[in-house]
Nucleic acid binder design. Structure first.
Lengths: 204, 204
DNA sequence: TGTAGAACGGAATTCTTCGTTCCGCTATGA
DNA sequence: TCATAGCGGAACGAAGAATTCCGTTCTACA
């Protein structure tokens, strides 16, 4: 497996990876930054995606798939509810799932397919939360919208190089997990964000 | 108190307030957004500030003053360490203190005066944390850098209108406070962000 | 070995956005 | 009545970004 075909296949991956990294860091980044980060020229990008919007759409759809896969993996692990949930959150942090789509909101047209996937994601996450709550391991007031918001904002922590950044994100996730695990604590102020509120940002 | 002078004085305040809100929401916002949010024209802005950089500098300096005032108020309240600390965090959230300066980092030249204030802020926050830890009310691993990062990121939660946003920010602050108050919990991963790391972002 | 063409790097082009300036207009207060 | 401070917003120019274009390189196959 070598030659131009292999190089191209490798570039496919390189570009997707770079796009994920760059747009997670800065949703408004120029497309040239993606090319640079991937170590390729701009035309390598335009050969694969019709436009920036096209790239963002595919990236967002991909992010939703990754996230859904994680939720389902967590649901499949029915031994220790809390451990499964905590592991799910940590994995989401590492693979950048659960935030990209949201942060990109507004910069591309939402397809019917994505709306459908969004509903699936919501339902699956709901199941995961319910199960964890039933095991008495999660604050009952926590809702799906909370998870979105938390993941999204953990991803916005950007200090130092990639490795340092990841460690810091895990530091604050650990803090949040401690708080989420506290079932006997005082009630939280304000209702959780609703599905409408989160989706509202797509249309704005 | 009416007439042109009064109108101008009112605009002074309107513009400062709008600038704070707009740049807290988006540090890269155009200056026209500030004018619009304040309900004034662009020239009302340029009559008061020489340039965008000038406005940002004054805003950042003002933000540092507000923050320092809050820390000192918390230190002055020496009855209940934890309540003082929690109240301090909540007030910072409401007045937008502790994050603006950081988020604006890199978009203007840092004056010697600001550096000095930065050191004061660090020292005062350190005292507040130490005191709260000594009372056994705060995780010992929490450092000044953590507070900066937490406040900064709580401010980036932007959903719904201003009032709704504020409630949600308080919801997640409450969660974080529960975690910070947990003195017996497992150790956090990764060291806290250092002063250098945070300041590093000024130099770009 | 010669050659068609896929894949690419990056300069050139075009479009957008933003900071700043400029030009009347209005209301105040002498 | 008039000079003018204060203002709204269009106009201008620079910076930056998306997209296109062209010359080059490398592969595969004759």
């Amino acid at each position: 497996m070598s030659g131009r075909k292999a190089q191209a296949a490798r570039n496919d991956e390189l570009i997707r990876e770079a796009a994920r990294a760059v747009f997670t860091a800065d949703p408004g980044a120029p497309i040239s930054a993606v090319a640079e980060h991937a170590g390729v020229g701009i035309s390598a990008l335009y050969r694969r995606y019709k436009s920036k919007e096209d790239l963002l759409q595919k990236l967002a759809a991909d992010g939703m798939d990754r996230y859904l896969a994680e939720v389902e993996a967590a649901l499949a692990d029915d031994a220790a509810p809390w451990a499964a949930f905590a592991g799910f959150m940590r994995r989401c942090l590492d693979i950048g799932a659960g935030s990209l789509t949201m942060r990109l909101a507004g910069s591309f047209e939402v397809t019917e397919d994505m709306s459908r996937k969004g509903r699936e994601i919501h339902a699956a996450t709901q199941r995961l939360l319910d199960r964890t709550k039933e095991a008495g391991a999660l604050r009952p007031e926590i809702e799906v919208g909370d998870i979105s918001v938390l993941l999204e904002h953990l991803h916005t922590i950007r200090i130092g190089d990639d490795e340092r950044m990841n460690r810091l994100q895990h530091r604050y996730l650990a803090l949040m997990l401690d708080a989420l695990h506290l079932t006997g604590a005082e009630e939280l102020p304000g209702p959780a964000p609703t599905w409408q509120e989160l989706r509202g940002r797509y249309d704005g």
